[in-house]
Write a protein that binds this DNA or RNA. Structure first.
Lengths: 332, 332
DNA sequence: CTGAAAGCGCTTACAG
DNA sequence: CTGAAAGCGCTTACAG
């Protein structure tokens, strides 16, 4: 491979002068600089990242830890990964994927070996075993998602509570006095997926403030089951007049169920939803909704991480991303 | 951070002895080895990847190049990324994500700077601008997908031709004399997405051999359009009696369309499909089908790449992954 | 079986 | 404004 020494020889300068133009941290006479740049282009030189990392003690890479391969998250995952990588690239960083099964051990190795300058954690759950070692090592990190206990690690997430409030407001504004929340399976709420709880609690609170009644239904996620359950629920004589859906499987299959039952929105039923942005893309879901914002969330995560890396001692921050309503006229 | 020197001091040996146990390339007396391992554990030492890379001229990382953020591929993408990372990890490698917009320049930089030991290319298209620089640099790489011209780069892909043959066989075995292929948009075939063409051509060929007639329909991918088109097609009096679907958008929405038209499979219509594995997971698609195999394809890709890295001069190889039929009894 | 020394390709004070 | 030298944390012949 061609090294800085080759470039220096070609340009007739010393290696340190080449390094100066590479890093841009020192003034180099324009004429010298041009010679060096020409040499770089001619030799197709690119700096060896490992050597630079060794010399600077910065790897310029960010590790993205993806928890144990969960089918459930898979479709949304790609959007985050690509967005994180793009945002990191824009700041001169590279992303390395950390998918090891034993993520706690992986966290330790990565930290001890200084293989990355900072960490982004995806699919964080309550009592995530990755958090503690990172926190005690004082390693720069940011979590996407908002666990109950962040262990003092910065976090970014969609403002699920805000989303709940907004959707209730929309229904209330049209005079709805009741709504049914089609939620995730009950154990998801119990096991501490805070996004589910934050949303549902906000729905309840805002509804109470507005004098609305909320009925909560816990739906499964297996396609067949959720379909059957919705059919039963919406096919009943006392079926709900308005829906707030927070369950990706349910919302994806809802158009089909509506059609089967010959129900139209908004004429027969008002529908709002909070769901992964991927779903709209794939299925053209026709509902008034709030969508996840992988791009914005990812950019915020990288931004927070970079700030954390430059000010390790700053106070922990939580950044909530504003919910954005897409109105598709499914509220009567 | 703790270095090899700290470990050496703690264990009372030289740095090179520590290195010997780290690399495992030299015999070290068991008692010495144990002292060293204890020191490593005590100090929570992990080797600095950059330093090792510099010394060995191997980075132990594999770059995965994802082409310009295409919404269309997004859901399937995550499965490949995670599977590639898992397979790479299993072989001691780490994966870095390369998502730069200008992927040609990215390829050059990565190659010139020896930032990765090898490359996996995802979402390869015909005349992919990334291929040429990699090929001329003689850089170890493997392509997932099978372009017309591989430029001498190893490739892995599902055996789309085999899949086409198998699906036709299934229909022929049940006595079907005709089938309609619901395909991708026409320009996908024209623009050289070889997977689409390989599948369709094999369907035609096998059908001809079996005396079956194939009608080819090019469907759009936008949810609303594909839905409308299928409704029209399947609602017509002369609607097809059996379907071979190769269009993810179409197959995802097909259950809904069938229901709308009050058609049941296999009673009213026989259905087979070739589609992304993610779809079944998300929607419990009920059709007899061949699915993409991200896990197997990714593992094969890493395997080929590792072999290529150790034998740069070996002949180019193309590995086709066997199609696997999932029978869901939708052929009458 | 173990250790001293050179070297991997950079960057960064420090002289000049 | 430019260059010589040391050093980042490893590995690897080479001696012993």
């Amino acid at each position: 491979m061609t090294t800085i020494a080759d470039v220096a020889r070609e340009a007739g300068v010393s290696r340190s002068t080449v390094s100066s133009v590479l890093t841009g941290r020192k003034f180099v006479a324009p004429s010298t600089r041009e010679r060096i740049e020409a040499a770089i282009a001619k030799l197709d030189f690119a700096v060896n990242a490992g050597a630079r990392a060794l010399a600077t003690a910065r790897t310029m890479t960010i590790g993205v830890m993806v928890r144990f391969h969960e089918a459930e998250f898979s479709p949304a995952l790609a959007a985050y990964l690509v967005a994180l990588s793009d945002a990191a690239n824009a700041a001169g960083y590279t992303v390395t994927l950390l998918t090891q099964r034993d993520s706690e051990a992986a966290a330790r190795t990565v930290i001890a070996g200084r293989q990355v300058d900072g960490l982004v954690l995806l699919n964080v759950v309550e009592d995530d075993p990755r958090l503690e070692p990172i926190a005690t090592a004082g390693y720069p990190a940011v979590v996407i998602g908002l666990p109950e206990d962040t262990h003092g690690i910065d976090a970014v997430d969609l403002d699920f509570a805000g989303a709940g409030g907004v959707l209730v407001d929309l229904l209330a504004a049209r005079g709805h006095a009741a709504a049914t929340l089609l939620g995730w399976p009950r154990d998801l709420y119990d096991s501490g997926a805070t996004y589910a709880r934050r949303f549902a609690d906000a729905v309840d609170d805002r509804a109470a403030a507005r004098g609305m009644t909320i009925t909560r239904q816990y739906l499964p996620v297996a396609p067949d089951h959720v379909r059957a359950e919705m059919r039963r629920l919406l096919g009943a004589p006392d079926r709900p007049q308005s829906l707030i859906v927070h369950n990706d499987a349910a919302v994806a299959l809802l158009p089909q169920v509506l059609h089967e039952l010959d129900l139209n929105s908004p004429d027969d039923i008002s529908i709002t939803s909070l769901h992964s942005a991927e779903l709209t893309q794939l299925f053209g879901l026709p509902f008034t909704c709030v969508e996840s914002r992988p791009q914005t969330v990812s950019e915020a995560a990288i931004e927070l991480l970079l700030e954390r890396m430059s000010s390790p001692a700053a106070e922990t921050r939580v950044r909530l991303i504003d919910p954005v309503i897409t109105n598709r006229e499914t509220i009567s």
